[in-house]
Design a protein around this nucleic acid. Structure first.
Length: 715
RNA sequence: GGCGUGGUAGCUCAGCUGGUUAGAGCGUCGGAUUCAUAACCCGGAGGUCGAGGGUUCAAAUCCCUCCCACGCUACCA
């Protein structure tokens, strides 16, 4: 349970979006929307909040893409940064500042940070051999190397991962490695890099995490998992031509050349939060104000991220901040899980996503376009587990909740006020038990919703707020003003008075979720002197969040003329929803047919691999052999150590089949082995070949057997 | 394989520091009403709380095993 009075200054960050593609609903549900709701709520309570974000523009992926598309990295980020920034704005993200990591401020801030840590000897330097492209004259980052996957034989595996079989690789494991830049064969060269010795930071990190038992389960669980494995030193510099340069004097201090070395993207990216805060402070005309947010113990720092970012925000960045010493550590990192779409994982490469810019365009004709998606997503946030977004659910949220429950309550209330009370707030006199019960419920609402926001139970906060509108409808029905306006005019006046107060409170309490509709409602109520949820100061007299528990409208106040009396929300028709679903399926189908990539078919037969030449095939030396002995490998779960007679000699071969086969099942089998595999050591034992097995669709291994004499060549 | 998170009504989820008849919204069935965007309001039906053990006077809630989904990671040579 967060204590709202523990701090009145908040620094809130939302994960920096990577500037090589547009934003989709998964990003919004994971980090951006919950952050914006939280921040808007905090601002309405009157707290001092700085909400920063920005584009993450460094890193190898952007460089890769630039090279692949024959563009410059600057060109890529200059395309996506404005697009992301503008779409965030259209979606209603209320950042105090949205920066970018290609800014001068960011370069300076990152270099300063690096300099300070180096000066404190927080880093260690290691010299290792890495792949170097002699033609391009540069070291190759993992993803700049392709080659044959040693696991599945896929020829286009990347240096860090094989996209065919999903294996995690290191670039030096690839067979027949090639540079993606020049197609040259890379060579090994020595290079020196800075490492952050996270294993040394583990004890202080564990102590610190122990002070936060209130963090979300999924976050603490993930952290514990990393602690159990033991943190490892991570390289924080790279030899690539895109990134924040390693400061020359820092390199010189170690007798090294800074040329060509940059700070790795995960080191500089979180510092982007700091540089964005600096830029914001400077634009406010108070350049030093950023230190109030980053270096004052009374500040509450909250990082909103998706679950893929937990490690960086809960372990790496905090350890950097700890090592630096001048900074506050995050008070909470309420990471969300993932959003699925129509029951399936989002996949940008398969075209399975709803893009923010497309939504904004497709629904541009609706009233309060952004609010509709904000509400639907806010009600479905993957807070405790993965959650599913469905278009039909979206329609139901909009039609059934925003329009029917909230919009209709407002509409029927305003209709009465204009029709029977000359567009004025009628006076409240001698309230009935039902009237008082409604006022009591109104009084409790702000605190109840606030508690949910403070605890990062955003979904609850939203449903709790909508509950007030439901309660309003209930009250309206119960008091039957359409009857009392003939039989008991004062009772009717009381109903409309109180219903208007409920509308006014909803205009405040729903502001974080549906800011556009809430503003429209305030206009209709003539409610002007209330705080805004957007950046910038409010008049001291302005009513805020907790004032929404008491009547905000004065009796006799006139409501602005409302000749049209348009409902707040229109309903979305079935055709619109069907069109969206169809659009999604069409795009997925097109991606399916345009790429033969079938890695998402684990239970089916693997797709056929790309053709190879006869020479490629002849490079394999396959031999008939007999398994003469088999025993488990100590400590290994899947490996058996086999002795195989291949005619010319006896080989020791490790096979990953222990889960399915007992040693006795294998001894005596006449099988086929790959005799010219390069040896590989595992668990202290050398494997000198590979026993061929067919893998059935359900994963069952079937040995490839032969009756041929041992040593026979198999072609 | 290891670790993590989840598996509760047809659907989406809450409850899970053990304790009255397991809750909400939607859907469904029925009723009431007509001010309002065929909206709103009331009520009923509907659950072996993933499976199986165990602890306890008492378990959705604690412990063990297993199954499934997702994520991270590893020993597929």
């Amino acid at each position: 349970m967060a204590d709202p009075s523990s701090s009145d200054r908040f620094l809130v960050t939302a994960a920096l979006p990577y500037a090589n593609g547009p934003i989709h609903i998964g990003h919004l549900a994971g980090a951006y929307l919950p952050a914006d709701l939280y921040v808007r709520y905090q601002r309405l309570t009157g707290r001092d909040v700085a909400f920063v974000c920005g584009s993450d523009e460094m890193g190898v992926a952007i460089l890769m893409r630039a090279l692949r598309e024959d563009r410059t990295p600057e060109d890529i980020i200059d395309t996506y940064h404005p697009q992301i920034r503008d779409n965030f704005e259209r979606f209603g993200m209320s950042f105090d500042h949205y920066g970018r990591t290609s800014s001068d401020t960011h370069t300076e801030t990152t270099q300063d940070f690096f300099r300070v840590l180096d000066g404190k000897d927080a880093f260690e330097l290691k010299t290792e051999e890495q792949l170097y492209d002699p033609e391009a004259e540069m070291f190759l980052a993992d993803r700049f190397v392709t080659g044959t996957c040693p696991v599945c034989g896929y020829e286009e595996a990347y240096g860090d991962q094989c996209e065919q079989c999903g294996s995690t690789l290191s670039p030096t494991e690839l067979e027949d490695p090639r540079s993606t830049l020049t197609d040259a064969t890379p060579e090994l060269r020595e290079t020196t890099h800075w490492y952050l010795p996270l294993e040394e930071m583990q004890p202080p990190l564990e102590d610190w995490i122990d002070t936060h038992p209130e963090w979300k389960n999924n976050v603490l669980g993930q952290i514990q998992s990393w602690f159990n494995d033991g943190l490892k030193s991570r390289a924080i510099t790279r030899d690539v031509p895109w990134g924040v340069p390693v400061p020359e004097e820092v390199a010189a201090r170690h007798g090294l050349e800074a040329e060509g070395k940059v700070i790795y993207v995960w080191f500089d990216a979180p510092i982007g939060y700091i540089s964005a805060t600096k830029e914001w402070a400077a634009q406010q005309g108070t350049p030093n104000a950023w230190t109030d947010y980053w270096q004052d113990e009374d500040t509450t720092l909250v990082h909103f991220i998706g679950k893929d970012n937990i490690i960086f925000h809960c372990l790496m960045f905090p350890s950097m901040l700890m090592e630096h010493g001048d900074y506050v550590l995050p008070d909470n990192v309420p990471a969300n899980e993932f959003l699925t779409l129509e029951g399936e994982k989002l996949s940008t490469s398969r075209g399975w996503a709803v893009w923010l810019h497309e939504y904004l365009d497709d629904f541009a004709d609706e009233r309060h376009t952004a609010d509709l998606l904000r509400y639907a997503l806010a009600a479905t946030l993957p807070e405790t587990a993965d959650a599913d977004f469905r278009w039909e659910e979206f329609q139901r949220r909009v039609n059934g909740e925003l329009a029917n429950v909230f919009g209709n309550f407002v509409h029927r209330t305003l209709t009465f006020a204009h029709r029977y009370f000359d567009g004025e707030v009628p006076p409240l006199q001698a309230p009935s038990a039902a009237d008082r019960a409604m006022l009591d419920a109104l009084q409790d609402a702000p605190a109840a919703v606030a508690a949910a926001y403070d605890d990062f139970r955003t979904r609850d906060a939203v449903s709790e707020t909508m509950g007030l509108a439901r309660r309003g409808n209930q009250y309206f029905n119960e008091t039957e003003p359409w009857h009392t306006h003939d039989t008991d005019p004062q009772a009717c006046a009381n109903t409309i008075h109180i219903s208007l107060q409920v509308c006014a409170s909803l205009a405040v309490l729903l502001e974080p979720v549906v800011p556009s509709a809430a503003a429209a409602l305030r206009t209709r109520l003539g409610l002007t002197d209330v705080r805004t949820s957007t950046p910038g100061p409010d008049p001291p007299s302005a009513a805020g969040w907790h004032d929404a528990g008491t009547p905000l409208l004065a009796a006799g106040a006139s409501l602005p003329a409302d000749p049209e009396a348009d409902p707040l929300f229109q309903k979305i028709d079935d055709d619109t929803i069907e069109a969206q679903i169809e659009k999604l399926r069409d795009r997925a189908a097109r991606h399916e047919s345009s790429s033969p990539d079938t890695t998402d078919m684990p239970d089916d037969l693997d797709a056929l691999s790309a053709p190879i030449s006869f020479d490629d095939f002849m490079a394999l030396d396959l031999r008939a052999g007999t398994i003469t002995a088999a025993e488990p490998v100590p400590d290994a779960d899947t490996l058996l150590c086999l002795q195989v007679d291949i005619g010319l000699e006896e080989r020791q071969i490790l096979a990953g089949v222990a889960e399915q086969m007992a040693p006795d099942d294998l001894v005596g089998l006449n099988i086929v082995v790959v005799a010219n595999m390069e040896p590989k050591e595992m668990f202290g034992l050398e494997s000198q070949g590979m026993v061929l097995m067919a893998e059935e669709p359900d994963g069952t291994f079937v040995p490839v057997t032969t009756d041929a004499e041992n040593g026979s060549v198999v072609r």
